[in-house]
Design a protein around this nucleic acid. Structure first.
Lengths: 299, 299
DNA sequence: CAAGAGCGGTGAATTTAATGCAACGCTTGA
DNA sequence: TCAAGCGTTGCATTAAATTCACCGCTCTTG
């Protein structure tokens, strides 16, 4: 909408780092853009950018103004969704930042269910590590985040929380697969394939190992749980993943790890604190919360 | 700020009920205003007003848009306050909707304390019954509400809650004044002076009386606790008020009413749900919460 | 029942605001 | 030392918003 145009341009300048570049992107003259900004600064009574020899950079006030713009934009989107809802359109778009574990089974199923009732609603799913997911929320790049063991939790408003134990992933013919429940030391004694340190599962593994005077020393370390799931079929390593990201009968087997060795973590559904969600996102969040609640209590 | 001008005009039209009247108020032509609205409706893709033979009225979409404007405006005010805070100005304005009981002692003292540290911050205090107070919050007419026994609590985000018993107010030479604690029946047996039904104290008195198969039958019924306090000195009636609105040694005496007869109510500090407060309001709310916490526990 | 007041809306003229163009002064890196 | 890239500014130009005059309509009122 046009009344936010100046803000949009300010954001573009902040991103480009220079008025001229941003002007080119926006298909207007540098002088027009320069004047818009000057006019805004005049009216607002504060300067938004530091003028550097090679361009401009937002100052603190500018950062605040930019944040204000993001909230305004998000609230406008919510307004639109409310209106669409009112006029019976049931349209909308939901953007979700989530941990990898949600990608194979849980989210596809939930989205499909939701879209049966609301075919006008579209989705964006962005896989993010737990830190990025929270950033996405704070910058209004996502409506919802579904994250295993988030880190900072500032600005993160928890909508729902479910405990999630970590499972060992094994080839069916792996010697450990004979036991119904594994000890952590057994997993560590074997060569193991672990997620990288940015990932929630690892964040639980490391202190648990240290607690037993051991260390996680992966043969293969990776960002990708998909790689973990497939690799254990090639070599007798032990992989790790939370329950919601696993389904048996896909080649590998999953085994519980003793709770006393490795405490369960939490899968959290959250949104940006203080933000009012668009209708579609709100409804989907409600559905997710119910679905998480109904998860097989694998504890 | 100018980018909200169209919204401001829409709000003015909604208030005035007619484009021509609103245009006159805003010192522009009716046709200019008409075009602004038409343009906005065009851009937004929805009509905001029903066109009636005698003027216009907001439709449901318009109501939503107006609400959106109010939140935008309030968020802009918060932005300004953040910037002011940043530049070390420590200025700001806090608007409070409160019950009468807060007016004589509590709020004046708290405001004075706050202003010692922040002389640049100004205040508006609006006495509202509990229903109006919540409306004020919802319409962003107040930053904070401090209300005894609020009614609806939708959109009311409780920041702090303290229990408040109701006291009987008596002339010092009133026969009942001899007892340290009164039974409710004694109060009702005497002629009494009670607040009107919109007021929280009354909302507790009525069911408590009914519970004993009695009824509140006031000799004088009033909106004003000030009148109650003064009237009991003229005639031997029993008045009622919560502790925070009373201080002894102002002519009358206060007596506890047995808790089993008349349960205590709650004084709630709250804000509009989902709204981010300006810096000054936020700080003052924090101070109020602490002060309420530290109140002499009269229970 | 007709006249008039009050309403929202429209077309053309006019005023105001925003933009484009060309050029300046400045810093920086080749 | 020179060219490239930056923000900025005066002036001409274009686009947008406003005004003015007027239409058609509905309801009230004498």
């Amino acid at each position: 909408m046009r009344h936010l145009e100046t803000f949009r341009l300010i954001a573009a300048v902040a991103r480009a780092g220079s008025i001229r570049k941003a002007a080119e992107d926006a298909n207007i003259t540098a002088s027009a853009l320069n004047r818009r900004i000057a006019r805004f600064e005049e009216e607002f009574g504060e300067t938004l950018f530091e003028r550097l020899p090679r361009g401009v950079r937002l100052n603190t006030v500018g950062e605040l103004v930019l944040q204000h713009y993001l909230t305004q934009k998000s609230d406008l989107a919510r307004l639109r969704s409310q209106v669409a809802d009112l006029t019976g359109e049931r349209r909308g778009h939901v953007t979700i930042a989530c941990s990898q574990a949600l990608v194979p089974y849980f989210l596809p199923e939930q989205i499909a269910i939701y879209r049966q009732d609301h075919p006008g609603v579209t989705f964006s799913i962005n896989v993010r590590d737990r830190e990025q997911a929270e950033q996405d929320l704070a910058q209004f790049a996502s409506d919802l985040a579904l994250v295993f063991e988030p880190v900072h939790m500032v600005d993160f408003n928890v909508l729902h929380s479910v405990p999630q134990p970590i499972y060992a992933i094994l080839a069916p013919d792996h010697p450990l697969a004979a036991q119904p429940e594994l000890r952590l030391r057994d997993c560590l004694d074997w060569g193991h394939i672990a997620p990288s340190v940015k990932i929630g599962v690892r964040a639980l593994l490391d202190p648990a190992a240290k607690n037993k005077n051991r260390a996680v020393a992966p043969v293969v370390e990776t960002d990708s749980f998909e790689l973990i799931r497939h690799y254990v079929l090639h070599e007798h390593l032990v992989g790790f993943q939370i329950g919601i990201g696993l389904q048996p009968d896909h080649g590998f087997v999953m085994r519980k790890i003793a709770e006393k060795d490795l405490p369960h973590g939490h899968l959290l559904l959250g949104q940006m604190k203080g933000r009012a969600l668009p209708v579609a996102a709100y409804r989907f969040a409600t559905q997710l919360a119910r679905a998480l609640e109904a998860l097989p209590a694998a504890l």
